[in-house]
Design a protein around this nucleic acid. Structure first.
Lengths: 347, 347
DNA sequence: TTGTACGCGTTATCAT
DNA sequence: ATGATAACGCGTACAA
C-alpha cells in the first residue's frame, strides 16, 4: 500500500495547540469552545475569553480530528487527465470557487494512464474526500459506481455517464460543432475534413455528429474518408492532419476537435509550408489565448471554462448540503470566435 | 471560520468498513490487522484471512484516522499564484511525482491576492498538511516562518527567502538572462529594452541584472530609460511594450522577462502592425509550447519545469524523512532555444 | 507473533 | 448556556 508509516516519525513537528489548551486557558470546557467554533451561542464573557485564548495559542482547528466525528473533511477530489490550457483554467477556477464554499481541493493528474486512474480512486478514498470531480469515462464506470454507492457525490464534466446517479456538466458539443462547420460550408467549402479525438469518448462523438449534421444540412455528402481520428494529443493531431493532407482529394477546410490537436495540425501545415487559410481553412474546437496571436489568428469554439467551473461547484455544493437528487445535467453553450483562419472559397 | 458543520450532516454517506470490521471477519485482533497494513510480520494464515476480509469488505484505510495517531496525513500543500503554462506544467509534474512518494497534493490558487494567500495558509494549517510548497515572496515571510516554526517543512521555488530554514529551487535567472541578452548584443543590437516583472521579486531582479551584465560586457551603456516594469501579466507586457515602442530612441531589440509579458508585447506589436524581427528583435524568458507555432517562432529561455518539480519533490521527501537540514538551495540551468524572432542588425 | 487498551483532537449527547 | 464524557478509526505500548 502506498501509505506506510514505518519511517517518517514526524519528529520535527511541534505539538499544535488543541481545543483543550484553549479551553484551559479560557477557563471553560472544551464543549463550550467547540460550540463557539461552530457558531453556536456562547455567553459573551466566555466568548471573549475564548477568542483571547485562541489568539494567544495561535490555535487552528484540526480538520482531521473534526472529520473523525463528522465524516466530513471539507475536501473534494479533483481528477484531471493533464494540465493543458483547458484543464489548467478549469482547475484554477474550480479551486478558487470551491474554497469560497469552504472546500479544499485534492488534485490528481492521471495522464490517461489506466493504472494512475485506479491510483487516483485509491487516494481519494483513503483520504476520505467529501466529493469527487472528474471527466466521465467508461473505463472508470465501475469505480465511480462504487464511490457513488458509498454515498460520496460525484460530479462529471465533459462526458456524461448514463445509469449512474451522478451530475454532469457539459458544453453543447453537438450544437457548437455544427455551427462551426456550418460556418465553413457557408464559405463555400464542400470538402471538409474533421480531426477528431478518441471516438470512444462521448464528447468526440458529439462533435463528430455536429460536423456531420452541418454537412448534411448544407446538402453535402459526409465523406467517411475525411474523418481522421486521434487521441486528443498534439502528436495525433499532427498525424491526422498529415493523412488529411494526403487524402485522395485534398480537403479545402478542416475542423479540428481540440486545441491540442489543432496545435499538431498547424505544426504539420507549417512543416509542409502550407498556408492557412489560403491553402486550407481551419476551425478549432477549444479556444486558447494564444490563438489570438497566431498568424493567422485561429477561428475557434470557445468553451465557457469559468461557467463550467461554477456549475460544477454548484452541483457539488448542493449534493453536499441536500438530501438526494436524481442525476442532473447542465449543458452550457459555447461561443464561436471568428478570426482569420478561414476564407471564402471562390465558386 | 470557513469550516462550519451545522449543515452537511453527511447523511448519505454509508459507513465505511473499518479495521475493526476486517479484524472481526478475519478472526484476529485489530492490532494484527494494523500491523499487517503497516508491513510488519504477520503469521501466514492470519495474513491470508486478513487479505480475504479486506477484499470482501472493500476496506480502505482512513488516512484521516491514521493521521490522528501519527500526525502525518501524507498530504502536501501546493500554493500557486495562477495556472499559466509554467505553473500548469509544474503542477502536473509535481502532483505526479509526489504521488509516487505516497503524497497527495492539496492545491491552492491565490491569484496574487493578499487575502487569498492568508486564506491559503489557513487551509493548509487546518488541514494539517505535512509540507508546503510555494513561491517565496516577502509578504508571506511571517506566515512561512510560523509554518516552519511549527515543524512543517516548506520548500520554495522561484524566489529565495533568506533567514528562514527552508529549501529553495530556482533556475539560473541571472546567467540565463545574460546569455539571452548577450545573444542580442552579438547580433549587433545596441539599444536593447527589457520588459521586466515586478522588481520587488527577486526573480525579476536577477533577470534584470543579467540583462545589465550582458550589455556591460558588450561594452554598451545600460540605459535606465529602456527598463520597463510591469506585474508579470499580459496586460502589463502590452503596456510596457507600448512604452518601449514610443521611447525617444526606439530600441532595436527587447528582452521580455516572462511568457505572459511576451504575449502582451507581441499583441502590442501586432496591433501596431510591427513585424518581428524586421522591426524589432525579441527574446523571451519562459519557453512555451506555442512559441514554436508563432510567426516568427520565438527565441526563448526554457526553464526545466520537470527538473524543477523533481528537485522540489526530492527536497520535500528528504525533509519529511530525515531529521533536520540547514536551508538548501538548488539552482538549475536553463536552455536557450534559438528561433526566428531575432535578426542580425546591419552595421 | 498476538491481543488488549489507551490516546490522538474533535463533535455530540446528556445532564445540569 | 455549560460541563463531563463517550464515541470516531487507527497506531502502538504493554502484556501475554
Amino acid at each position: 500500500m502506498s501509505i506506510s508509516n514505518g519511517r517518517r516519525p514526524a519528529r520535527g513537528k511541534k505539538r499544535q495547540a488543541t481545543i483543550t489548551d484553549v479551553a484551559a486557558t479560557a477557563g471553560v470546557s472544551i464543549g463550550t469552545v467547540s460550540r463557539y467554533l461552530n457558531g453556536y451561542q456562547v455567553r459573551r464573557d466566555n466568548r471573549e475569553e475564548i477568542e483571547k485564548a485562541i489568539e494567544s495559542h495561535g490555535y487552528a482547528r484540526s480538520a482531521v480530528a473534526s472529520a473523525m466525528k463528522t465524516d466530513t473533511l471539507h475536501m473534494v477530489g479533483l481528477m484531471v487527465p493533464n494540465c493543458d490550457e483547458f484543464h489548467a483554467g478549469l482547475l484554477a477556477s474550480l479551486v478558487t470557487l470551491l474554497r469560497i464554499e469552504g472546500l479544499a481541493t485534492l488534485t490528481y493528474c492521471h495522464g490517461n494512464n489506466q493504472a494512475s486512474v485506479e491510483d487516483a480512486f485509491n487516494v481519494f478514498r483513503t483520504h476520505r474526500v467529501d466529493a469527487l470531480i472528474m471527466t466521465g469515462f467508461d473505463q472508470a464506470s465501475n469505480r465511480i459506481s462504487e464511490v457513488v454507492g458509498g454515498g460520496t457525490p460525484v460530479v462529471l464534466y465533459d462526458n456524461e455517464l448514463r445509469g449512474l446517479n451522478v451530475d454532469c456538466v457539459k458544453v453543447e458539443n453537438f450544437e457548437s460543432s455544427r455551427r462551426a462547420v456550418r460556418h465553413l460550408a457557408e464559405l463555400g467549402h464542400e470538402r471538409v475534413a474533421v480531426i477528431t479525438g478518441n471516438l470512444s469518448h462521448w464528447t468526440a462523438q458529439q462533435r463528430l455528429r455536429g460536423y456531420q449534421a452541418a454537412l448534411e444540412e448544407a446538402g453535402l455528402q459526409a465523406d467517411p474518408g475525411l474523418v481522421f481520428q486521434g487521441y486528443w494529443t498534439k502528436h495525433d493531431g499532427y498525424a491526422a492532419m498529415g493523412r488529411a493532407w494526403e487524402a485522395d482529394k485534398r480537403p479545402t477546410a478542416v475542423f479540428s476537435c481540440s486545441a491540442r490537436m489543432t496545435f499538431g495540425a498547424l505544426t504539420f501545415l507549417k512543416d509542409q509550408g502550407a498556408r492557412v487559410p489560403n491553402d486550407i481553412s481551419l476551425v478549432s474546437f477549444d479556444d486558447v489565448e494564444m490563438f489570438e496571436l497566431f498568424d493567422p489568428t485561429i477561428t475557434a469554439v470557445a468553451q465557457p471554462v469559468h461557467r463550467i467551473a461554477e456549475s460544477i461547484k454548484d452541483l457539488v455544493v448542493s449534493r453536499l448540503n441536500q438530501e438526494e437528487f436524481h442525476s442532473r445535467l447542465v449543458n452550457l453553450p459555447c461561443e464561436i470566435i471568428l478570426r482569420n483562419s478561414t476564407r471564402r472559397l471562390q465558386s
